[in-house]
């Protein structure tokens, strides 16, 4: 197991290096620079700025410097937000985005799996149709429209939740719901189809022939086998929710990391783009690793390479 994780970490570093390089070069190819604005800067000032941030050096020197800095977990200063480093931005914004994301993932998984199970157990009856209508709506309605709907009905019309901002737990519910709606719908469909597949298996008939009740069969025999595809989806889902939250953060006025990510691209704020990309990449790679480890726990047939045989 330790050997397996070590090997995976090595690959992660390799992928990270490739992501960093690709981002670095694509960013430079994009026209414009951090100091291009409506007001033309005097050439002397621009030269000074470039020198200050090291942009006057040849690209390979900049590239090397950047790699060295990343290894030391220093993403450098922001080009736009004076006196703030990228590390500051991440440290401020990430906890908020993380909390929002986790809440959304929790809602998506809990409700999605529940809806999927109900739909599968009541296959082709009204609970199934209801759950699947909810799922189709969830998949086809974009999160920003869902957000506006929630704000309009639950906050403005009914006044149950605050409209926006990030102050208390009540403030977190609407954005988390809006963020969770699409993945929840997707998980519901995924759970339903994989439940139906498992329910058609012979071993469910075996379980029934032992005289187990349908509740026990569902809990002990069906769900565990049906959850594997859902676990697979968890890796990309985590990344998607964390990165995808910027629209929701905008709508609800949440001071998260997503907002920085979008504005930094428009600003050509090189260090922020790089820093946030690297940060998100690490999150994604770690979540994929966790998913792979979770596989081995859920399904004993999946042996993690390097694991001991017969364990």
């Amino acid at each position: 197991m330790a050997k397996y994780i070590g090997k995976r970490l090595l690959y992660m570093i390799l992928s990270l290096w490739m992501i960093v390089s690709a981002t670095f070069f694509f960013m430079r190819i994009a026209p414009g620079n951090p100091f291009a604005s409506e007001k033309k800067l005097p050439p002397e000032i621009e030269a000074n700025l470039n020198a200050h941030f090291g942009l006057d050096k040849p690209w390979y020197a900049q590239y090397w410097e950047y790699l060295v800095r990343i290894v030391n977990w220093d993403f450098g200063p922001s080009f736009k937000y004076k006196s703030q480093t990228v590390n500051d931005l991440i440290n401020e914004g990430f906890p908020v985005s993380f909390l929002l994301g986790m809440e959304a993932i929790f809602i998506a998984v809990a409700l999605g799996v529940l809806l999927g199970i109900i739909a599968a157990l009541k296959h082709n009856r009204w609970p199934d149709y209801t759950a699947m209508i909810i799922a189709v709506l969830g998949i086809s309605v974009p999160s920003f429209i869902m957000a506006s709907f929630l704000q309009y009905f639950l906050a403005i019309k009914m006044g149950i939740f605050p409209v926006a901002r990030w102050e208390s737990f009540m403030h977190t519910i609407l954005p988390a719901l809006a963020l969770a709606s699409t993945p929840m719908a997707f998980i519901a469909r995924l759970t339903r189809s994989s439940m139906l597949e498992v329910l058609a298996n012979d071993y469910i008939k075996t379980a029934k022939s032992k005289g187990l009740s349908s509740g026990v069969i569902t809990i002990k025999h069906t769900i565990r086998n049906a959850l594997l595809p859902v676990v697979t989806y968890m890796g990309p889902l985590t990344a998607g929710i964390l990165t995808g939250s910027f629209v929701i953060e905008r709508i609800f006025g949440i001071p998260g990391l997503g907002a920085h990510f979008v504005t930094s691209i428009n600003n050509r704020d090189y260090t922020v783009i790089m820093g946030v990309t690297v940060f998100y990449s690490i999150l994604l790679l770690v979540s994929i690793l966790l998913v792979d480890i979770a596989y081995g726990i859920i399904d004993p047939r999946i042996k993690l390479a390097g694991g001991k045989k017969g364990e």
Partner: peptide, 20 residues
């Protein structure tokens, strides 16, 4: 079921729960 009458199925590859 299981107490008075039991059943053995055709395909032992699929009639046991793989994760139990």
């Amino acid at each position: 079921r299981g107490k008075e009458i039991s059943m053995i199925f055709q395909d032992p590859m699929t009639s046991l729960n793989p994760t139990m």
